[in-house]
Computed example of a mutant assay.
Amino acid sequence: MKFDKNDSMFLRQIIMQHYSEPQHKHLTKKPTALSIHQNSESCIDDLHLELIVTDQKIMTACFDGVACAISTASTDIMAQELEGKTIDEGLKIIDNYLAMIFDKPYDETKLNELIAFINTAKQPNRIKCATIGVNGFQTLLLDLLTIK
């Protein structure tokens, strides 16, 4: 599916859909789940993230907690993008997304709905919101690489 990065209403709809009806907002609480707690000192964002990885493949990516629209939507969309990917593929998705967020070269064709956050670099006060959950998923995946 092609996403129009120039249609601000469409981008806003993506964010609001994932905020109001997040598909990955739940925790498995399985003993095999890798988990991390991410919270912000400067706002309400307080998230618990989980990944279930089997044979180097991300089987489940989910989260729960309280967060603003940007944090909730970016975490939900990233969870959606990570599921079914290998650890390395997941890290590449995250790296590409973070490059966009920090206004560095990135491949927009690989972002899918994450393109909704394309203007975040122009709103520095929203960068933490758009990365708090993503940074947690990245930490969990990087930890897995050091374990193998």
Rank of each mutant, 00 (worst) to 15 (best):
F3C: 03
L98C: 03
Q38H: 05
T60K: 13
E89G: 07
P105C: 03
L144P: 01
L91K: 09
I70V: 15
Q138D: 12
P124D: 13
L47D: 07
F10R: 03
R12V: 00
I14Y: 06
F3S: 01
K128P: 07
F3G: 00
N112G: 01
L47H: 08
K148L: 07
V66S: 14
D88R: 01
H26E: 08
C129Y: 10
L140A: 02
Q80H: 13
Y19V: 04
T54H: 14
K30W: 01
H24P: 06
M1V: 11
A73G: 07
I94F: 05
A33H: 05
K122C: 02
G84A: 10
N39C: 07
R12M: 13
A73R: 03
S74V: 08
N135H: 11
L114E: 12
T75Q: 10
L91W: 10
Q138A: 11
Y97A: 06
M59N: 15
D45C: 08
F10P: 00
I14G: 06
N135E: 13
D4C: 05
G84I: 07
D45E: 12
F3K: 12
D107M: 01
C129D: 15
M16F: 09
T86C: 08
A116P: 08
Q38F: 00
E83V: 01
A73L: 07
H26V: 03
D55N: 15
A116T: 02
G84Q: 14
D7E: 03
T54L: 13
Q56F: 08
A79S: 14
M78E: 09
K30Y: 01
H37W: 04
C68P: 04
L11F: 08
M16Y: 01
E50N: 07
Q17Y: 02
K92P: 00
K2S: 13
S20E: 15
A79L: 09
T131H: 04
I118L: 14
M9E: 15
H24V: 03
Y97E: 08
D88I: 02
Y19R: 03
G136Y: 06
I94P: 07
A61M: 12
L114M: 12
S20H: 10
I115Y: 06
I77T: 02
I77G: 09
D95P: 01
T139D: 13
E83S: 12
A33Y: 03
T146A: 12
A130I: 07
I15P: 11
D143W: 00
K5Y: 04
L11A: 04
I132F: 10
E89I: 02
K128C: 03
